[in-house]
Design a binder for these strands. Structure first.
Ligand SMILES: [Mn+2]
Ligand SMILES: [Mn+2]
Ligand SMILES: [Zn+2]
Ligand SMILES: [Zn+2]
Lengths: 144, 144
DNA sequence: AATACAAAAGTAACAAAGTTGCAGTTGAGC
DNA sequence: GCTCAACTGCAACTTTGTTACTTTTGTATT
């Protein structure tokens, strides 16, 4: 059976990326994360001394290669989550809704909830969609 | 008939905000804007010498008072647009879709297009929604 | 296994965006 | 016209991200 490390190696090579310690660590962190993470949140979970600039470059190439996707927020902080299906450098298929809890601040990928479409005024040509909900998550509901 | 300046004064006082030169200028800029503007874009349109810190504080209180709303983006830049209907400190009613053109980078408020709702897994309680489309706008369509 | 080379990492310097603390100024109600 | 909380202006700082350049390394080839 393939180990977790095997899977990392395969994912990187399938997307044409070289195997390096930083890349394996970053991918591991994002694959294990239950929520979308910001640059500094990822940095905190990496081996001490990992270079911040290299991290940003890694996130950029992961996003371009279709390993991760950006999760937007009503703040100025960009977060990332691992893509769950077969995204590639050619196209992302992350057509799902995101949910941000206003209590714990966690951002969930609701992979099972597709973004509904809208009808637009003529002449607007849509290429991608983002749908962000804010509210109170499962964990933060007041006790019944 | 009420002038543009009269309207600014009324809007500020209706939301319980004091009349100051900076506030009038910032509100004017956002009311005149066809697109959502970032902090520095607003700054460029203000009288020279207007303090950047005061601008940020003004945007914060305008947002809290319901004069303007945040427009999110897939970048780390926060933009603002004037609220079109009667939002207040108690509640915003900006339930419309936004559209970002990948050519001209302008972000339109599609005030006439309501955000469609989605059905969520149990226990997620929704408080607000954001819906951002990206693509090519009217102005940037290739010639026919 | 050694070689070659592009890709990635590391380092430093920098820039943009936003925040905090505090002193001074002013709008609006009395 | 006083009064004072609200607002402004300034300095210093933090966080996030970028650019330019040199060194190291992963991988394909011999
Ligand atoms: Mn997601
Ligand atoms: Mn809007
Ligand atoms: Zn929560
Ligand atoms: Zn355009």
């Amino acid at each position: 059976m393939p180990t977790s490390a095997d899977r990392l190696v395969r994912t990187l090579s399938q997307h044409g990326l070289r195997q390096t310690p930083v890349r394996r660590s970053v991918l591991q962190v994002l694959a294990d994360a239950a929520f979308a993470l910001s640059g500094s949140e990822i940095e905190q979970q990496l081996p001490a001394g990992t270079d911040r600039i290299t991290l940003y470059r890694t996130l950029k190439s992961f996003e371009e290669s279709g390993l991760i996707h950006r999760v937007i927020d009503s703040t100025d902080v960009v977060r990332y989550a691992a893509c769950s299906i077969e995204c590639s450098a050619e196209a992302h298929f992350d057509n799902h809704v995101h949910f941000k809890c206003t209590i714990c601040q966690h951002i969930y990928c609701l992979n099972q909830v597709a973004i509904p479409t809208v009808t637009l005024p003529a002449q607007f040509q849509v290429v991608s969609r983002d749908y962000l909900l804010a509210g109170v998550c499962r964990e933060c509901q007041p006790a019944v």
